[in-house]
Design a binder for these strands. Structure first.
Ligand SMILES: Nc1nc2c(ncn2[C@H]2C[C@H](O)[C@@H](COP(=O)(O)OP(=O)(O)OP(=O)(O)O)O2)c(=O)[nH]1
Ligand SMILES: [Mg+2]
Ligand SMILES: [Mg+2]
Ligand SMILES: [Zn+2]
Length: 572
DNA sequence: GCCGTTTTCGGCCCGACTGTTTTCAGTCG
């Protein structure tokens, strides 16, 4: 039984208890479910090796839930869950996808109308039966209908890269309003999560009314979900929700901290405040009626006795303890990169010429770039063979001469790792390159052991400098191939191979959790755009963000160095 | 149900908006 399956059952128990109005337990189950879902080892294995005791070691899991997990692992079933489900036998996860519909409403709809599924609910709403229920009415029925309509079109969480440009436009638009003193996008976007559930916008203003009116009447708005004095929410035609919070200047820091989250980070801070006899909310940190902090986030963390925590770290995964001990890492900054080490040109499947990339890189302040076209096995891209890549070197030399010393153009490759772990170009050719990147582009479905052996063999090659997009995932489209990342990281450490953080918004590969492991292991990383056109050169920030989410410092990333120092970090 | 240099018992983050309601529950952030 997978972690996700266990987590789902535990979470459902929480929802059923919530339905019955049981206090506190729902949160306990919710927390436990999240703990299981976030585990990076398998619960079954944890139980197999350490038994109940090991399960109870997981924060949020105590004796009672540990026993339930044991039953799930042993029998594939949980009597307690089955019993709760028998009382209200509905498609809970399906119905919960309807915005605004919570456990209490679902229970009522089942008991009064026999609604078990989304389809049942649709029939009941269309027949006007929902509006007749006590505590429901015409508007609740209408909202359910709208929710059902939206659910049919819903397409899941969009990529950060797909919403960031829109978010920045909305930010600018609000900034143009005269009542607006400050605007900032908070929420998961400020934490640079790889996918985004909604936009959370914070505005400072003395006059919220006009700001709210402007916000809910933006042209893209198709539905006003809420329209209040301090908070509004809308749905855009793209399906994206946008929340707006407006506060006075003296609450800016506290409100930004609240709206940035994560929820778990917020709750942990609020518990800290509570333990000191204080109260933390979005208006400030208070001792009785007196505001101790709230105008800035820096002040808020300081008064709580912590160092400032960067938004990318606010996931309640240990950052709070480090901040209290003043031991937070100093994260790599958004201006710290000197160059880009993965670029595909029109020699293969890229859209632009070496020369135009060089000019664009100079405009962006890069000191070096690596030209890393595909190799011959990727025939559909016109991948380079040993002969053709030598021709490319001549062109690189020509462009280098033309542009002079402003930018170093490195001769590189994104050489295919073949099925057996050998490489698509011969060693003599690889040895003559400035930067040799290798990557898996085929046989994604090899068994874990074989895939791991294949990649290890490739990076053990003394000519190989960097492993590009190490897990091969495409967010929302393709799962990472099955590979033992711990073994790859270990080998990278032993061989001095660099692992890449591919910044392309649908890759972000390595992702934050793997970056964290590399940092701990002392494996060096590179941040590259994987550009296939000049516009893609701007993706570096997504890679930097992922590095920051993995707690990487400047020194962990090789292309923060100037050329000479950077080249020294590659294999001899 | 979980958890602990304020507690092994008694707390549990805190607030906004809506809709249906004569005073607040439900849902969400
Ligand atoms: N204190 C507190 N803050 C919360 C709670 N729920 C949400 N928040 C805060 C933290 C969140 O980051 C912020 C925005 O809420 P969202 O639901 O939009 O979450 P977030 O943006 O983190 O993720 P998302 O990508 O939108 O799913 O509001 C809560 O229950 N308590
Ligand atoms: Mg959000
Ligand atoms: Mg939100
Ligand atoms: Zn390519």
């Amino acid at each position: 039984m997978s972690n996700q399956e266990v987590a789902r059952i535990i979470a459902e128990i929480g929802e059923y208890l919530d339905m019955e109005g049981v206090p506190f337990k729902p949160r306990a189950y919710e927390k436990a479910a999240k703990a299981v879902g976030d585990l990076d080892k398998s619960v079954s294995e944890i139980y197999a090796s350490g038994g109940l005791k090991a399960l109870e070691q997981i924060p949020g899991i105590g004796a009672s839930i540990a026993k339930k997990i044991e039953e799930l692992i042993k029998t594939g079933h949980l009597k307690y869950h089955d019993e709760l489900k028998k009382k209200v036998p509905v498609d809970l996860s399906g119905l919960r996808k309807i915005e605004g519909l919570g456990p209490k409403s679902i229970k009522k709809l089942y008991e009064e109308l026999g609604v078990k599924t989304v389809a049942d609910l649709e029939r009941a709403a269309k027949a006007g039966r929902v509006a007749k229920l006590e505590h429901f009415g015409a508007k609740s029925e209408e909202n359910i209908k709208k929710g059902l309509e939206f659910l049919k079109k819903a397409t899941g969480r969009p990529l950060l890269g797909a919403v960031l440009p829109l978010a920045r436009r909305i930010e600018e638009r609000l900034r143009g309003q005269k009542e607006v003193e400050k605007v900032i996008i908070a929420g998961s976007l400020r934490r640079w999560k790889e996918t985004i559930g909604d936009l959370d916008v914070l505005v400072v203003s003395k006059k919220p009314g006009p700001v709210m009116d402007f916000f809910v009447s933006m042209p893209e708005v198709v539905r006003v979900v809420a329209h209040g004095e301090t908070k509004s929410a809308v749905k855009l035609e793209s399906g994206l929700n946008v929340d707006l919070r407006v506060v006075p200047a003296e609450s800016y820091g506290a409100a930004l901290n609240y709206l940035t989250g994560s929820k778990d980070h917020n709750v942990a801070l609020r518990e800290m405040a509570l333990a000191k006899g204080w109260k933390l909310n979005e208006y400030g940190l208070f001792k009785g009626k007196k505001q101790l902090a709230g105008r800035t986030e820096e002040e808020l963390y300081a008064v709580l006795g912590m160092d400032y925590v960067e938004p990318e770290m606010r996931e309640n995964t240990g950052e709070i303890e480090l901040a209290k001990k003043h031991k937070l890492p100093k994260l790599i900054g958004y201006d710290d990169l000197q160059g880009d080490l993965q670029i595909q040109t029109d020699w293969t499947d890229g859209a632009d010429t070496i020369e135009s990339y060089a000019k664009a890189a100079i405009e962006r302040g890069h000191k070096y770039i690596a030209i890393t076209d595909h190799t011959k096995r990727l025939a559909m891209t016109g991948g380079l063979d040993e002969k053709k890549i030598r021709k490319q070197w001549v062109e690189i030399d020509r462009v280098q001469k033309k542009i002079g010393a402003k930018l170093k153009i490195l001769k590189g490759t994104e050489c295919d790792i073949l099925k057996d772990g050998s490489l698509d170009l011969d060693d003599e050719t690889l040895a003559r390159l400035d930067v040799c990147g290798v990557a898996v582009h085929s046989h994604f479905d090899l068994p874990r052991e074989e895939q791991t052996k294949r990649i290890i063999r490739a990076i053990k090659n003394p000519n190989v400098d960097i492993l590009f997009h190490p897990t091969g995932r495409l967010i929302g489209k393709r799962e990472p191939y099955d590979v033992d990342m711990d073994a790859i990281i270990k080998t990278a450490k032993e061989t001095g191979t660099i692992l890449e953080i591919d910044a392309f918004p649908d890759r972000l590969d390595l992702k934050d959790e793997h970056v964290k492991k590399c940092v701990v292991a002392g494996v060096k990383l590179s941040i590259d755009t994987d550009a296939h056109s000049i516009a893609h050169l701007d993706f570096l920030e997504y890679g930097i963000a992922q590095a920051r989410r993995g707690w990487a410092e400047k020194s962990d990333i090789i292309n923060t160095r100037l050329l000479e120092a950077f080249l020294k970090l590659l294999k001899k």
